[in-house]
Simulated assay, not measured.
Amino acid sequence: MIKKEFEKFEYEIIAEDPVDFYQNLKIFEEMVKFAKELGKFPPEDPLEGIEKDIFLAKILNKSKR
């Protein structure tokens, strides 16, 4: 019951506020700029932790079958 009401509320909020691509792009660019200022982007080793990501992807893909 509560979940249905929440989903209805969520749908109404989304319908009232259309997506603004350029605003979202501006936010994304500012986040990348901030990450660069912190020295966190680009990562020193882009493949760091990839084994963990592959492991999780395999588990998630098996559960979809």
Rank of each mutant, 00 (worst) to 15 (best):
M1V: 03
M1R: 04
K3V: 03
K4A: 03
E5Q: 08
E5F: 04
E5R: 09
E5C: 03
E7Q: 07
K8D: 00
F9T: 01
F9A: 04
F9K: 03
F9C: 00
E10V: 00
Y11W: 08
E12P: 01
E12H: 08
E12I: 04
E12D: 11
E12N: 11
E12W: 04
I13P: 02
I13G: 03
I13N: 03
I13C: 05
I14A: 10
I14Q: 12
I14N: 09
A15W: 02
A15M: 04
A15K: 10
A15I: 01
D17I: 13
P18L: 08
V19H: 06
F21P: 00
F21Y: 13
F21S: 05
F21Q: 05
Y22V: 03
Y22D: 06
Y22A: 00
Q23M: 14
N24L: 15
N24Y: 06
L25C: 07
L25Q: 10
K26P: 00
K26C: 08
I27T: 15
I27K: 15
I27E: 15
F28Q: 12
F28S: 12
F28E: 15
F28A: 14
E29G: 12
E29P: 05
E30P: 01
E30H: 12
E30I: 11
M31W: 06
V32S: 14
K33W: 02
K33R: 12
F34V: 05
F34K: 14
A35D: 10
A35I: 03
A35P: 01
K36R: 14
K36T: 05
K36V: 02
E37C: 01
E37M: 12
L38N: 06
G39R: 06
G39W: 05
K40F: 04
K40V: 03
F41L: 05
F41K: 01
F41R: 01
P42G: 07
P42A: 10
P42Y: 06
P43Y: 04
P43T: 07
P43D: 00
E44A: 05
E44Y: 04
E44S: 11
D45I: 09
D45K: 14
D45E: 07
D45C: 02
P46W: 07
P46H: 13
P46F: 10
P46N: 14
P46K: 08
L47D: 13
E48W: 06
E48A: 11
G49L: 13
I50E: 10
I50R: 11
D53K: 15
I54K: 09
F55A: 12
F55I: 07
L56Q: 07
L56M: 08
L56Y: 06
L56T: 10
A57S: 13
A57E: 13
K58T: 05
K58Q: 07
K58W: 03
I59E: 10
I59S: 06
I59C: 03
I59D: 07
I59Q: 08
K62M: 13
S63A: 11
K64E: 15
R65P: 02
R65V: 15
R65N: 13
